[in-house]
Structures are given as C-alpha cells and as structure tokens.
Write a protein that binds this DNA or RNA. Sequence first.
DNA 1: AACTTAAATAATAATTTTTATTATTTAGTT
DNA 2: AACTAAATAATAAAAATTATTATTTAAGTT
Lengths: 134, 134
Amino acid sequence: MEFTQTLRDQELKVTPQRLALLEEIEHAGHIDVDALYAILKMSFPAISLATVYKNVSQMYELKILEVIKVPDRKLQYEIAKAPHIHLACDQCGNVLDMNKCIDELMFSAESESGFKLNHSAVVLNGLCPSCQSA
Amino acid sequence: MEFTQTLRDQELKVTPQRLALLEEIEHAGHIDVDALYAILKMSFPAISLATVYKNVSQMYELKILEVIKVPDRKLQYEIAKAPHIHLACDQCGNVLDMNKCIDELMFSAESESGFKLNHSAVVLNGLCPSCQSA
DNA sequence: AACTTAAATAATAATTTTTATTATTTAGTT
DNA sequence: AACTAAATAATAAAAATTATTATTTAAGTT
C-alpha cells in the first residue's frame, strides 16, 4: 500500500486501523470524523471513536491530512495534496477539488498583500453543473 | 447606530446586547464566541453565553454575520460584507481582509468548473509583511 | 521465532463546546 | 400605560473532543 510508506515517513506505526482510515479518507475524498468512525466500524467493530479523533488530529499535525470547513457541515478531512480549490455543491452536497486557478490566486494575493503565503483554504459554494439543470 | 437598522431589517428586536455584540464584532474584525462573550461580560456582567451563541447563529442564518475557519483556531465571526479574501498571519495572529483578487477568482472558478457560485470562503495563511522583517 | 519495548488501541472518564428548556424581563406596538 | 411576542439569563442537556489507563500490538533485537 502507498500509505504504508506515508506512515513510516512520519514515524507512525503501520496499524491496520491507520491504513483503513487513510484509505477510507482517500476513497471518500472529504469526510468528517463521525462518518469515518461509522465506516471504520464495519471493518473494525471494536474501534474506538477516540482512536479516530487521535489519529486524525495526529495526521493533521504531521500534514498527512488537511482539513476544510464547508459552511454548515462538520470539519472535513482529506488526504493532503497540492493546494487546490474546493467546490461544494449546496444541492447534492458533493465537494469537488479543482487544481486550476489556485496558483494564480496565491501569486496575486502575495504580491497584492505583501504576505509570504504557505497555506490556502479555499471553499467555494454554489450549484454544480448537474444540479443546475435538475 | 447603523446596526439598529440592520436588526430592524431582519425583524430582530433591537436590544442593547445585540447592538453591543455587533459593534464588538465590527471592532474586532474577526472574533470567536468565547472572546466575544468575555468582552461583552464587561458591559453586561449578567450576559449568558447561550445568548451569545444564540444571537451569533441567528445572525449567521440571517446573513448579518459570516464565519471563517482559520486553521487551529475556533470559528471566527465577522460582519457580513462583500466577498473577500482573509489573510491570516501565523506569527502575530492577525486576520486581514483583502478585497482584490476575489472577483477574478470567483469568475475563473465558475467558468472553469461550470459551478454557479454564491459563496466564498478563502483563508490564506502565511507571514504578514511586518512579521517577515521581524 | 521468541523477546522486548515503546507506541497504539479500546474503554472509559472528563472536559469542552454547543444547544435546548424555562421562568423572567423587555422591546415594540396598541 | 398595557399588551404581547420575543429576548434574555439561568440552567440543564446534549454533542463533540480530549485525557487517562490498562491491554494489545508493531517493529526492532536477539
């Protein structure tokens, strides 16, 4: 598994729970702690909610995970990757990643403000193409 | 007061607590519930934390307030205004509003993704100019 | 392959954050 | 001034998160 290496790189022990957690986050794209717990319980009936919280926070600190806040939803975790834009549809609830536009934004914002940026959290809300026509 | 009208427009009764709450949020720029409560207690020693929560949520639903999530901080409330970018300095903790760049971003993101956008939450982190030189 | 040890887990308690309930007070109207 | 619906304060309840601890397990070492 690819995540085995991710964990080793951060000197975290490779446990079945951690691998499943990462795989599920990757599969879901964006997911909150509760939903994650519910899903993991299917493979690990004895898993503790505290374990999910602990791991998720830990991996967030180690930058294995990122977190975004979509209005009116709980914090959503995702696998950390290159900075990107989150498009959240208010109708169907989907959250889409978009890699375009973000570099231009960061660049313009830096030169405009004089900030030296190292992190972005961009969440745009609206209706996705299919929900517009529906 | 300008906020008197804001409240009337939304058919909320104009109470001293509400006016103070709005004025304090405006004055702070961005503030979380706890800090807000602590400050309001100075003018209203008997104010209830539940009142702060209630009003803040209520005004958020009525779009009088907006909320942003800066990494590792509690939810920050601000007076709703035109969409803008939040620049958060990791050193001094300040959150700055920037009105440039956001329109271009929304426009590009819409045409790129096909979404019809109606809301943005952009938080960029880094070092502000003065913290860079310090 | 068994042994060792530090770390991870599950279970649980404790804490923190947020929301609900209710009696009292108050803003806005008549 | 009186009325009424809404807001507040106080409090309880619920939900979310973190801490504690005994047990289990991953990963290195013999």
